[in-house]
Design a protein around this nucleic acid. Sequence first.
DNA 1: TTTGTCATTGGCAGCGCTGCCATTCTCGGT
DNA 2: ACCGAGAATGGCAGCGCTGCCAATGACAAA
Lengths: 332, 332
Amino acid sequence: MTSRDQVSVTLAQVAKAAGVGESTVSRVLRNHGSYSGKTRERVMTAVERLGYVPNRIAGTLASAGSRLVAFVIPSLSNIVFADVLRGASATLENNQYQAVFAVTDYDPAREEALVASMLAWRPAAVILAGYEHTERTIKMLRASNCRAVELLDVDGTALDLAVGFSNRAAGRQSAEFLLKRGYRRIGYVGHDIDRDTRAGKRYSSFCDTLSANGTPLADQEIYREASSVERGRLGLDRLLARTPDLDAVYFSNDDMALGGYFHCLARGIVIPSQLAIFGYNGLDLGRVMPQALSTIRTPRVAAGELAAKLIMDNASPQVVDLGFELIEGATA
Amino acid sequence: MTSRDQVSVTLAQVAKAAGVGESTVSRVLRNHGSYSGKTRERVMTAVERLGYVPNRIAGTLASAGSRLVAFVIPSLSNIVFADVLRGASATLENNQYQAVFAVTDYDPAREEALVASMLAWRPAAVILAGYEHTERTIKMLRASNCRAVELLDVDGTALDLAVGFSNRAAGRQSAEFLLKRGYRRIGYVGHDIDRDTRAGKRYSSFCDTLSANGTPLADQEIYREASSVERGRLGLDRLLARTPDLDAVYFSNDDMALGGYFHCLARGIVIPSQLAIFGYNGLDLGRVMPQALSTIRTPRVAAGELAAKLIMDNASPQVVDLGFELIEGATA
DNA sequence: TTTGTCATTGGCAGCGCTGCCATTCTCGGT
DNA sequence: ACCGAGAATGGCAGCGCTGCCAATGACAAA
């Protein structure tokens, strides 16, 4: 009885050990259909004695739908997606669903490949970020008979379900807020604007709003890489070196903004009188900074939860705008 | 041909459409065994035309081992586990493995339940955090014929594979560092010490080292909740209110330390002359703070990568100590 | 006792694929 | 023209479970 390479216990073995039929064991274990108390006891004893663990692979194949939910997310470094997963996974686990995931690195081609390989597991649903997918991705998703949830965006046309908030509105309101506070020489420090299309939407809508006000974006510093505190600090440094007279800077997210904040602290730049800072996401740490970060708080965990709930409830196709909250903070 | 509730295309249908046998289709798609060029062409055409997506559930059931790797991690909020997942998932995806995960919230009972439900998917391996598991968890893992990898710790007895670093050594070296720098009135601000057993090991080893030096821990503030920047700030506030003459504080990790740092900034406490701060993890943001955070950098992504690699290589049971790096920083 | 009802239970055909084995086809060598 | 080796291919029995249906048993009513 070596532990490696032993074949695992099967339902049939349990049935034999308990002296009942296979279907009976199945019924008892799934608590589905009827069986007597003593039968239940006999089965459970056998299960315990043999250390039986049901094989869900076989179970899924035999019954119709799988209890897998596939997440195809851009990044794990970005806390945003960890939040979404966290929100969703609790609900999923409570309903005996399993989360499967893969990381695209913001690459649509990779997303396509990963969706294909996820679909091979016949998941109950695929959860993606945003609306921008390759044609083939969309085609595959439509052809499959599984649900699709697009998260964190509502500016576009949904495939099936969508849960998020308007990045365009966020960009606009950020600009309006800064304008209302009297800032006019406004810069931008951002990341990965082509690939992170949600950040791109905020950016363009931010710029449009500024332009409409007659005070277009004064300068910008955009990086190809993923967002990070480090890039934020470096970006603000470069931006100010080039355009020292800015009075406010909009960052692509809170991580970047924190980097900018650190830069100001290090250089003795007084916030917000000398320079205002505005972020996006509303991470918890923003509230704890010596000066609370002015930002937009997005309901990421709630988005994950709702996505999971809609799937569990087999909801009809819809787009849910969860909105967001502008945090006035002390940095702008 | 409605898109919902249509039954998906099967291998048999592809075979019929291509005018070949099922096994041939299977061989072509898996590029396994021999087949002629024109057969391949016919099959691929049929696949394309029908939009066939192989069913890995069936494939896994039919063949022996699955290509699933199960992660049962304590938390997703903690960037540490996101790093581990990131490290592992790249390697896994390159080898056509799928990552499945579930979150325990640092609860051993929950871990037990989740391991059981993971095992039902007959994964190739289960990846856990640390060595502390319930007896039943261990028993199940041993009884299953899948690999187990315990991550982020090497202080204890491994089940099978383990990849990590010594938390005891980290605690000790942190204490030694502070002592070497001349600090003597040292406090601790921590989280969840019973449940996060790795943090607990650092803590106790830190305390032991201080005591051995004749300067035991002066005071401490420990929270039941998960670590966060907010708790770090609050914790330091309370700690100093009670014991104002501390000259250094050891935090359970960098998030907590950042909170402490913010508190000092807000209160005008000069770092490190008035109060020194030391963290754990070596998050990137520590390097970008106005004063680089003194901390210990752990190779989390590398641990994830190695874990994945060992599984792919079907390595024999072993414990790999990846070590860590003490960052001298400017805060202590 | 007889009959009907309903809770229990077992048997067995798949779910879609892979692995094994048998069969057929090719083609160089004789 | 014939043979043998190996390439190419098809057939089919499972993998372990679930869903359906038929069979059995128990018990109250007639």
